[in-house]
Design a binder for these strands. Sequence first.
DNA 1: CGGATCGAC
DNA 2: CTATGTCGATCCG
Length: 768
Amino acid sequence: MDNMKNVDNGSYNGGALLRMGLNDNKAGMQGLDKEKINKIIMEASKGSKFYENELKKDQQVNQRIEKMMQLKEKITQQQLLKAQLQVDKLVMELEQSRNLSCTIVHIDMDAFYAAVEMRDNPELKERPIAVGSMSMLSTSNYHARRFGVRAAMPGFIAKKLCPHLTIVPLNFEKYRKVSKEVKEILAEYDPHFMPMGLDEAYLNVTEHLEERLNWPEDKRRYFLNTENTTEKNKEDINISGTLNIDGYSSSPELFEDGTSVMDDHSGQRDQSLKNVVVFGTSAEEAVKEIRFRIEQKTQLTASAGIAPNTMLAKMCSDRNKPNGQCRISPERQAVLDFIKDLPIRKVPGIGKVTEKMLKALGIVTCSELYQQRALLSLLFSEASWRSFLDISLGLGSTHLEKYALVLLTFSEINTAEDQYSLCRELCRELAQDLQKEGLKVFFILFTFKRTPLCTQNVVVVKRVSLQRHHSTKSATNFHLDGHSKSQLSWKVLPENICAKHSFFDKKRAARQLNCNNVFPSESVGKQHFHGVKSSANFVEEANKVTGLQKSNVCEIFTCPVCFEEQSSSNLEEINRHVDECLAGSLVKESVEISKNDFSRENTFSFLSHCKNENIDDCKENITDQLAGTGQSGSTSENSSGNGKDKKFTQIVSEKPHREKQPGDLIDIPRNASIKQCLFPKRNSQENAEQFGRMDHTEETSSSCSFEAKEDSVLVCPVCNSEQKTTSLMSFNRHVDVCLNKGLIQELTEKGNRSAKTSDTENSIRVGE
DNA sequence: CGGATCGAC
DNA sequence: CTATGTCGATCCG
């Protein structure tokens, strides 16, 4: 089966492998050729259910192709000509709207998880390794790739391909920490950058490059951190007496042009200047700088693509992988040249199936895709052929959509403490992330579900954003040991904080104000979290949303905690109210955990705010946070000093030693239906069994007792009505509709001023 | 509308 | 010894 997903892109990194010098046949690392790889995979797979299913799917694709070919036969010359005219008209329009003015960068960490593991365990460095489990691998290093071992391959098959393969279990917390370090660097180049999972991100560096042009050299000067540099690099530096450019690290090309090494001045200040690097002002130089800083900070390498849009940037970053970069200059011809002979399979969005379908039409490269545009418009859906057209013209999006969804799967979280500390950690990190993204106010609902046999942790995140944004994007999955797998996911929903009949408002009724403090106050209080400043903008922001930003008077303000309307004319009073509410509802455990309960559910939420308009404020925050955690931030010089009404009115808790901070947990309304949805439909049989044995969930608040029936009624968290459907999907849809109704009501009340929020996406997805 | 499929990570 | 994940978006009946 040559189109099995495990093999289909086997030759992707052929060039990269050569560059890495991995074709050297060191110590039994010959690797395998493609034919052998396929044969081994075939033998390991055949007979399995998975393989049968693959065969079936493949047949279906073949049938689809057949259908398509029949359709093609029926197309008359006239139809084709007509289509050609229509499509070409569109091509003209697209061509006119071509935007080459942005500089988009795609950063891609090289074999991320594997690289982290190799960094932290040098023994693994020279060996083929993969990260994951016997059932599923997340990634592999370049040694292992020579044997055909790659991401999304089951470990047991990988072992057959490469018997010496070392499989390292996922260490997700570690990757996240490293990813955070990288993101801190990226945020300096684009505060609104879009992370795609842990190891990839898009940046719009257009603004950065404009500013950078006027930057003095000292802002582009970096010191080689020899402590954090590999032994080899230290040697290079010591032996030569100056920095040996070619010998530097694994990143020779980082310095290949335009970059000067300050060894000329060694007469002035001998030692200190030897390890200095200055980057230029061009896009390439800026990206080299990014990659240099990433490597300095994390000892990991990244590849990058620079192009006028995201699609091109992504394909660019793939070109000189690993540890390389590539740029498509912002000229139409350069774009078309890049696209010309590019196999369509390299294009993000074109996978195995589309590739095969197009191949049946004789289309392999992007220029062939363009030549066949008229035919494609007749054979494929509108969405499909239009995206084909975009691809073949090298068009793509130039603005980065807001990062809004993170999904995590990781091992069991057994104890309540673990859950809490995880929540705190996630809150803190999310607060930072969102600050960097420039998002302002958000609200997170954590719901953990635990059962004795299967741990299912689901985190629902509601973000209350005061700014317009749309789609949710990107998900990252991490897989752990199969049977005790648990899942944690969060979903961010844009919503208006001051909604009078919002989702939250409805939930107010359900809110119980028993405020048992779960966390000893010092456990959070002693954390050096400096996000407080941005929190304080909350009232100000809320003010704006209610349409009163110009009047300086807050007539009606809906408290985000108690949802009561506050009429006050001064900010201080409102702040005081919010403080009281926050203090009153501070960190609370929603459910009494009983010794005997079979399921346990803990729910808490988190409120944070970040002002967006003033990017410097955000920067300052990041810098503060870095300082607080003992890391170094380099933006401090340009982060403060603008007296631009930085009214960081602090929202201070009434508890004397305890400031309300982003990352803090506060209580949230309990909700039965969300609980209900935690049971994955997929496992409904098993779950029903488990839950059948479960008498009930013990709870301190009465409103949400749990029915242990397989097909129990779902209660909509918005309208509180019972939904009879047994399908999660239709239930989710119902909730969506309810949410939107709520939103429409708000809009009606607020009038057109906030109409722009009407296109915000509201959806809630739970469980599954 | 909802299940199936695709592509991504 | 076994053993192939999971999401959102889109398609299509």
